[in-house]
Design a protein around this nucleic acid. Structure first.
Lengths: 206, 206
DNA sequence: AATAAATTTGACTCAAGGTTCAAATTTTAA
DNA sequence: TTAAAATTTGAACCTTGAGTCAAATTTATT
């Protein structure tokens, strides 16, 4: 924790390596933990588990992180950052509403199958402000996707119906991915993405 | 626990009330807990919480139940029992594959929104044989639904494609229901069922 | 009313696992 | 080579919550 406090004052002189290395290690702590959370769940993953998978000791983790809850929080943040970026990349697209939705959904599926990032459901284990922040971000993302659906409906590419229900429906599919993806090893990530997008399209096209 | 052991020997003489009452109370312990698990998650729900919501003391719960894990196990069992029943009721139907699937899905949605029963995701918190049993039941149900999809494909009512992926897709939607249903109070359970079935149909029809 | 069975409780034990910290070790820079 | 900073550790601490049990209380039976 010292390192992080120092870094602000030292950043003028300190070589970039320092901070970068610290950040990289911190990041890998969170990613490694996130992957364990996804498979075994937050409460079934102990700090010792996380530490061992990195060749460290439990105590060492606290050099990078305030506490276990912060790890959960940060892993959510990472996921939402990636999703925000995806959404942003389609902000001024010339694609139709439906096409945009398809593209976003495909990127989401790829995000969750390819990278280590995962959609996390243990929001209830976050307390107070942390929980609030994460729920806000989730809502923000859902709202943005809902807007795309509305655009598609206005433009006539997406069928009528409560936009929120459309979004909930396929966000659920996305979420469920975590429960079986790495288990059914024989399914190819691309096949999944193709199928899901196909089902999204035929389920929503006007 | 005595009561349960006795009941076997005493069942000849004992008035039905006794066992029935015990079973009813045990059942309500499990239902009440399941509902809390659904909202807050298994690990965020303590035995004290469960007890309080029934006007009891933690210790009293152990009169009806071996331990906390058994509650989780039994609540899964209850859900799967209900689903089995739904599946069974369409075993010898004359409906097409697609129509059968729609009907099943509608019943599933209603099961999860109307009754206290919930689809539970905390399987990882079950250990050893208990986990195995529950996973077996889940697989069995998924396999049966997959069979319906295959039947629909064979009969030409459902489009081609990996049947498992179809099932995973809408089982995910079903599952995600738990995450937002009772929060968004303004959505009517029937509207949800209607929408979901509509999206299922248009997403899978040949 | 009296007795037995069923049900509930308060007070306790116990283990798991998150967190802390001073000391040891390693890395970096002069 | 050496001193300061960064990183890691072992050994404890501490909180939470599951599970136990003998005793108290309630309910049913004669």
């Amino acid at each position: 924790m010292l390192a992080k406090c120092m870094s602000v004052q030292m950043s003028i002189k300190a070589p970039f390596d320092r901070d970068a290395q610290f950040a990289a290690k911190r990041r890998s702590v969170i990613l490694s933990a996130a992957s364990a959370f996804r498979r075994r769940g937050y409460h079934n993953t102990s700090m010792v588990d996380i530490a061992k998978s990195l060749g460290l000791t439990k105590a060492a983790l606290y050099y990078y992180v305030k506490n276990k809850e912060e790890i959960l929080f940060e892993s959510h943040v990472m996921t939402y950052d990636s999703m925000d970026e995806i959404l942003k990349s389609y902000a001024r697209t010339s694609l139709s509403g439906l096409e945009t939705l398809e593209a976003i959904f495909r990127d989401f599926v790829e995000l969750l199958t390819q990278s280590g990032v995962s959609l996390l459901t243990d929001v209830d284990s976050l307390k107070g402000d942390w929980e609030v922040q994460i729920l806000k971000r989730r809502n923000k993302i859902e709202r943005r996707v809902v807007d795309v659906v509305k655009r598609g409906q206005a433009g006539g590419t997406i069928r009528a119906g409560d936009p929120r229900l459309y979004v909930f429906f396929f966000m659920g599919a996305l979420n469920w991915l975590n429960a079986w993806y790495d288990i059914e090893g024989r399914l190819d990530a691309n096949d999944i993405a193709d199928h899901f997008v196909m089902q999204l399209r035929s389920g929503m096209a006007a």
